[in-house]
Amino acid sequence: MTALTHSPMPAQVGLLAARAIKGTLRNPAQMVFPIVFPLVLLAVNAAGLDAATDLPGFPADSYLDFALAIPFMQGALFAALNGGQDLARDIEGGFLDRLAMTPLSGAALLAGQLGGALFMGLISAVLYLAVGVAFGVGIAAGAGGALVLLLLSLAISSAFACLGTFVALRGGTGEAVQGFFPLFFVLLFLSSAFFPRDLIEHEWFRTIATYNPVSYMVEGIRSLVISGWDGQALAQAFAIALIAIVGFLALSARALRTRLVRT
């Protein structure tokens, strides 16, 4: 009889989230790259594209202010990737089967899994905010805006983590998750993350960016940094994140049921 037998669901979630977080903390290399890489890219882009702020109609005086939203998105993507790979490893290594032998509920498994990714997402978001402020980025919406920014960032991390979980459960291998990862980046690069939508010259690119939900997530975060409280931008960002969470969670639950065929 395992310790999980009589655990209520919150305790099960706690156990699994703690395991996921411990796994992440014990492999610092796994944490360093996802946190440092977006910062390096931010620094490089801020210098490389600063000239763009001279264009008429560019919404910020410094490209750093404009681009600070990007690391939050990348941090969420990496958290999702790591979480997905951990889960895929559990599937490949048979650990998931071991969990299936316990009275663990599927919901607890998913929630615990997401807990690990959210922890990663939160740590990186706080760090990005601190680095941004340290380098002179003002949060236009103030301290309250900074809190909402972290909240939105967590919602976005959850959305991507749910997608990562789904891919892991469906694909069942680390390669499947890894292979899916570039798609995350395609979504980011083909959005308005690097340039304001109305200043994008090519019609086809502007159209893709307009239909790309990631644009609205980025614009939600960006609005808090460069323009203050923008109800519409925030509502769109939160709504898209929540829809993604609900949708991918439902898909994950279904994939989990297929994977954990228990009698």
Partner: peptide, 19 residues
């Protein structure tokens, strides 16, 4: 993809006077 993203998304930057 990089080519699409950079050449497609950032091309306005060529309108900066000193480009």
């Amino acid at each position: 993809f990089f080519f699409m993203a950079f050449a497609g998304g950032l091309s306005s930057v060529q309108n900066v006077p000193e480009f």
